[in-house]
């Protein structure tokens, strides 16, 4: 064995434990879950009788799945609106805060800390606190935001928040408090990313543009925004995959809600599997979740890796 070859082997051997562990715990388990999703397992005792895609049909066809299909459709819509609005809030507010903080602000460190600290908390903590803030109370004894509105004499704005069943088309308004809570937690993340991006843009570039007669707004629109685009993409992927698989926050804050107004696949999967003991059905839901996440993440991983090889 040549020297270099031996070392390559050693390198591989060092990686081997991790490769084996992840091979089993990620890929092996995913395959296992897929197998469960194609089985008849309904109840505590495993039953691997092959039923093909029946559990998936039940999720997507109302005629076969009945209420499961209805619930899943609502879940997908909820996930869609939650993701879109959550991303918009995080990217919009995060970028705004980063740009503001980039203006040579006194006390920047304090502001940064304040915007970013929710990131260090658990989704469970966030869920509990925001549940308290948005729980509507009763008409005679309002609480949370409703109590605040009452104190300010704005009773007409009192609302049932996450217990409301109102909707605009397929968008359930009860999702709004949940989105606020999620955005509160994650906006600091996009802010930090943008701030790092802004700091990475050499001052000479901006100066040069200004010399060319560009206004501050133009500098941002023509020079800075385009340079922040890769950061936006990264933020969208990271936050997007979090929102597609969100569970802890909503489970703690609201649960599925009346008429599934705040239900998401993560909660559906958890309840179906561990409360209803419909293991095969739960596995099918989780596989759909996995596919949704993979759709977002795999292209990103592939391009990232390619970009690196080219470098």
């Amino acid at each position: 064995m040549s020297h270099a070859r031996k070392e390559r082997w050693t390198a591989f051997l060092i990686l081997l434990p991790s490769i084996i562990l992840l091979g089993i715990f990620v890929y092996g388990f995913i395959a296992w879950t897929m197998r469960v999703s194609l089985s008849k397992w309904d109840g505590i005792t495993p039953d691997y009788t092959w039923v093909g895609f029946e559990n998936f049909h039940r999720l997507f066809s109302k005629d076969i799945g009945g209420v499961a299909a209805i619930r899943f459709r609502i879940d997908l819509w909820n996930t869609f609106f939650f993701t879109v609005l959550f991303l918009l809030a995080c990217v919009g507010v995060g970028m705004l805060l980063a740009i503001l903080l980039d203006q040579r602000i006194r006390g920047e460190g304090v502001f940064r800390t304040v915007y970013l600290f929710p990131m260090s908390l658990s989704f469970v903590v966030t869920g509990v606190v925001w549940q308290w803030i948005f729980s509507p109370g009763t008409a005679s004894r309002p609480r949370g935001v409703n109590a605040l509105l009452g104190m300010m004499g704005l009773e007409q704005l009192q609302w049932r928040w996450f217990t409301s069943t109102e909707s605009i088309g397929p968008f359930h308004l009860a999702l709004i408090p949940v989105i606020v809570a999620a955005a509160w937690q994650m906006t600091g993340y996009t802010m930090a990313m943008y701030l790092a991006g802004l700091r990475g843009i050499p001052e000479e570039l901006r100066e040069a543009a200004r010399v060319d007669g560009a206004t501050e707004t133009q500098v941002y629109r023509r020079i800075i925004m385009p340079m922040l685009r890769p950061i936006t993409l990264s933020a969208l992927i990271v936050l997007g995959h979090i929102s597609l698989k969100i569970f802890d926050l909503i489970y703690t804050m609201t649960g599925k809600g009346p008429g599934f107004v705040t239900d998401v696949p993560g909660i559906f999967m958890f309840e179906t599997t561990f409360q209803g003991n419909h293991y095969a059905q739960g596995a099918a839901i989780s596989i759909v979740m996995l596919l949704m996440v993979a759709l977002v993440v795999v292209p990103y991983l592939v391009t990232s890796m390619r970009g690196e090889v080219e470098r």
């Binding site: 309904d42 009945g66 209420v67 619930r71 069943t165 599925k256 003991n277």
Partner: peptide, 18 residues
């Protein structure tokens, strides 16, 4: 059974809303 009750619960969750 627990599984059946879960199914009824899902039906009722929808019913109380609409």
């Amino acid at each position: 059974s627990e599984g059946w009750v879960t199914g009824i619960s899902d039906a009722m969750t929808l019913f109380v809303a609409d």
